[in-house]
Design a binder for these strands. Structure first.
Length: 559
RNA sequence: GCGCCCGUAGCUCAGUGGAUUAGAGUGUCUGGCUUCGAACCAGAAGGUCGCAGGUUCGAAUCCUGCCGGGCGUACCA
């Protein structure tokens, strides 16, 4: 690609004295290995006929590329289609799994995603954001970045007050010793139930609402006073730890570990301090007793950073968070991944920070993904308790796997199915969770890819021929596979550039298809072309495994 | 009201800062395992790319208007 691309640039410069960044694509196989529409772009500027320009460029390209190219043809309006020589394609395939982008080399990148709240339950949305965030982190690493995966969550705030209220009610008062009566495996469930109870009563009962508001304030005070000893504090800290333990176990299980949690409580102080400093400088303003940022002058909306009771809102804590990240990591780039409902909120927070720390905002990217919706349009609400839990999704996938008689490596297959179902969709628009489809083991699915890998490994384990390091000519099925393999580095580059893991999914599926088609019609072991085919399949299996690992999906030898 | 996002086959989605004949999966129908793993492969059927204009040699893709849906819009996170 690089060769074709840079040659094209120089050819255009030579022929027409124009500097251009040409579009080079991978067209349908029947047209060639590469295609470009530069001739049509240039025709207008040059006031010349499109195919005439194409002729000129094609001629020069042929000279420059020499025998690495098999043919260069011109199609309809003025496309130039380039077909590489078999040996060239084979060579590209050989290096596909080791040719990585280098654009982020040496950069320190903080990637924040998942962001569940302690005292609440992990639902399908957390599962999704963890999977997609992890894959994006992997892409950054593939491009040479030093990635730090961090997690931000609300260990203080109204939801904690609600849960704590119900806990106190359930335990019969501030009696931390009674926590011992809750079995380890039932802790998360108990807290989830308390949150639902607390939320409902907050909505329905005015008297209780005041109590919960007061509890919320007490929780902040408990942090301010570094209180770990009072009964209320012991209750709080124990349950907070239960939440983090529960998160850790879950992340470990799905293979998306974090190196650091930023509890909101640890961002509150620096957040408030920063906001107050900037209040004095006029970035933030007093309004109705609260401290706000007026976004209207930037086409955004106004948001409260410190409420009229002096408590920092999520906004101020997010300000604190970005300060903390910078102190801890001195990042070159910070990426925050959340669902799209946070988009305009985050725009306000970042715009406010831009007024006093523009360099931090410049280095920050807010990536958004969709909200997971239920098929049929049922709205999920953790307040009402009608949510799809993350563990339920995994359980459903496990059942599906069992049904088809899942053999070895069940857990890898289950996670492969779930992760791939989420990752294959373009990041951004909302997605619909369909328990049947999302857990699919056939067709365009994770297990399809894992199976296509296991099959290849199985063949390789039976082969004995010495590998062939080069190929002068290939049969059509072999060539299709080789060509597909050769696209890998370009796909990774694109996925990194756009922070879009789904490009990898689409590609890997096409790659596995190319292999399955090859497999259908050709023998490997014992064939006279065994050497070449074994080598080709080795390259293929490497690329497939590497690509899956970028997605956070394991490629077992057998399944 | 204003702002952001979305509308492609029955269903779930690729394709979207221009390009060759709109593609997958799934579901329905059909064919293929004495041969390296059938979680596979091959074929059929299925689409006014929400609607209407506009720009262009060329529009699912860009622009405008409209219709439909989601989210956000001051003291929740």
């Amino acid at each position: 690609m690089q060769d074709v691309y840079s040659t094209l640039v120089s050819v255009v410069r030579d022929a027409f004295n124009i500097d251009i960044q040409p579009e080079v694509s991978r067209p349908d196989e029947q047209f060639g290995d590469y295609a470009t529409n530069v001739a049509m772009q240039l025709a207008g500027r040059l006031r010349r006929n499109q195919s005439e320009v194409a002729e000129v460029l094609a001629g020069k390209l042929k000279e420059q590329l020499g025998d690495t190219v098999k043919s260069i043809t011109i199609a309809k309006p003025g496309f130039i289609n380039i077909t590489l020589d078999d040996a060239t394609i084979y060579g590209l395939a050989a290096h596909a799994s080791t040719t990585k982008p280098t654009g982020l080399r040496g950069q320190v990148i903080v990637a924040e995603y998942s962001d569940p709240n302690p005292f609440k339950v992990l639902h399908v949305g957390h599962l999704y954001t963890s999977v997609v965030g992890h894959a994006i982190g992997n892409l950054f690493e593939a491009a040479g970045g030093e990635v730090h995966r961090v997690n931000f969550g609300g260990d203080v705030g109204l939801h904690v007050g609600k849960t704590m209220w119900a806990m106190l009610d359930d335990l019969g008062g501030e009696r931390p010793e009674k926590l011992a009566g809750i079995p380890k495996e039932g802790r998360a469930e108990w807290m989830a139930r308390c949150y639902v109870t607390g939320s409902n009563i907050y909505d329905d009962d005015e008297h209780t609402r005041d109590e919960i508001t007061a509890l919320n304030k007490r929780i902040y005070e408990l942090h301010d006073n570094n209180d770990h000893d009072s009964p209320f504090a012991r209750l709080y800290w124990t349950c907070r730890q239960w939440s983090y333990d529960y998160f850790d176990r879950f992340y470990e299980r799905i293979g998306t570990p974090f190196e650091k949690y930023y509890p909101e409580s640890e961002c509150a102080e620096i957040g408030i301090k920063t906001v107050r400093e900037q209040l004095a400088k006029g970035v933030y303003e007093q309004s109705d007793g609260a401290v706000v940022f007026k976004g209207e002058k930037y086409g955004l909306h106004t948001r409260v950073f410190i409420n009229s009771q002096g408590i920092p809102t999520y906004e101020a804590k997010d300000v604190g968070l970005i300060m903390r990240k910078q102190q801890d990591y001195h990042f070159d780039r910070s990426v925050v991944i959340t669902d799209n409902s946070q988009e305009q909120y985050m725009a306000v927070v970042l715009k406010s920070i831009e007024q006093f720390r523009p360099e931090l905002v410049k280095a920050t990217t807010h990536l958004v993904h969709g909200v997971v919706k239920m098929k049929g349009g049922t709205k999920m609400s953790s307040r009402k308790g009608n949510i799809l839990r993350a563990v339920t999704v995994l359980g459903t996938a496990r059942e599906a796997n069992k049904k088809i008689g899942g053999r070895d490596n069940d857990e890898a297959t289950v996670l492969g199915a779930v992760k791939y179902a989420f990752l294959k969709q373009r990041m951004g628009p909302d997605l619909t969770y369909d328990p049947d489809e999302s857990v699919s083991l056939d067709g365009n699915s994770g297990p399809y890819l894992q199976y296509a890998h296991a099959r290849a490994r199985s063949i390789l384990s039976k082969a004995s021929a010495e590998p062939a390091t080069s190929a002068n000519s290939m049969q059509p099925n072999e060539r299709s596979l080789a060509r597909k393999i050769s696209e890998y580095p370009e796909v990774i580059q694109q996925a990194v550039n756009e922070c879009m893991p789904h490009y990898v999914c689409t590609y890997l599926y096409e790659l596995a298809q190319a292999f399955n088609r090859f497999y259908e019609h050709n023998r490997v072991v014992g064939d006279e072309r065994e050497a070449l085919r074994v080598t080709l399949i080795t390259y293929y299996a490497q690329v497939l495994k590497d690509g899956l690992s970028l997605l956070g999906i394991k490629a077992p030898e057998r399944m």
